[in-house]
Simulated scan of single mutants.
Amino acid sequence: MIKRFAPFALLLAGPALAQAPAPAPTPAPAEGPQRPLSLQEGAALKCSAAFAIAAGPQGKGRVSLDAAQTARGKEFFVRTSAGIMDGARWPRERVAAEIGSIAQVLQRPGELEAAMSPCLLLLDASGL
């Protein structure tokens, strides 16, 4: 019996549903105007790139991180990237491109080694 009246009920409810305002869509974190990175965000992004290099084969023989520092560095990388996507409203592609360009600079002789000491301090200060 209910099956027989369901189309009729939809026919009656149609005009009421059409008049109801549509809910406003919630913007995704990457939408909206993008802003430049703050000094802290830029430093954190540089350190994220440094930790990524240090954890990979390019860092072997250049810097030495223990297993705990490597794991914390990876988490720092993830949280920094997500924070920039949310806070600065940068899309994932832009964050990845910026990390890539920073990594290019860190590949130069002495750059990774010079960056690692302040980055380890920032890692400790982050509480991770």
Rank of each mutant, 00 (worst) to 15 (best):
V78F: 15
A97R: 11
G83H: 06
T80I: 05
P118E: 14
A97Q: 14
F76R: 01
E93H: 03
G59L: 13
P109N: 13
A54K: 05
A115F: 09
I2G: 04
A52E: 11
K74R: 10
Q19M: 15
A49S: 07
L121W: 13
L122C: 00
R89H: 12
P27Q: 12
A50M: 08
D124V: 02
A55D: 07
R72K: 06
R79L: 08
S126M: 08
G56I: 15
V105A: 14
L37S: 02
A50Y: 09
E113A: 13
P29W: 10
R72V: 04
S64I: 11
G127D: 11
L128F: 15
L39D: 04
E93N: 03
L11Q: 02
S64T: 11
I84F: 01
P29E: 10
L121R: 07
P7K: 07
L122Y: 01
S81P: 00
A24R: 11
D124L: 04
L128A: 09
L12D: 04
P27S: 11
C119V: 11
E41Q: 06
Q19H: 15
P15V: 07
A13E: 13
P91G: 03
E41T: 02
S64C: 05
L122V: 00
P7R: 07
A30C: 00
D66I: 05
A20L: 10
L12F: 08
R108T: 11
A50Q: 05
S117R: 15
G87K: 10
I84T: 01
G42F: 11
A125Q: 13
P29H: 09
Q34G: 09
S38I: 07
I53M: 13
I53Y: 11
R94P: 00
W90Y: 05
L45F: 10
S64K: 12
A52Q: 14
A20E: 07
A18Q: 10
A114P: 05
I84W: 01
A20G: 00
V95Q: 02
V78W: 15
E75P: 01
P118D: 14
A82G: 02
A50P: 03
T26E: 08
E93W: 05
T26D: 02
E31F: 12
T26C: 00
M1R: 05
V63G: 00
L37H: 02
P36L: 06
A43G: 08
G56W: 15
L11V: 03
L112T: 05
L45K: 05
A50W: 08
V78K: 13
A30I: 06
A67Q: 14
E111Q: 09
P7H: 08
G56M: 14
A55M: 05
V95W: 06
R89K: 12
D124M: 03
A44E: 13
G14A: 03
W90A: 01
S101F: 11
D86K: 09
V105H: 15
L112Y: 09
Q104F: 08
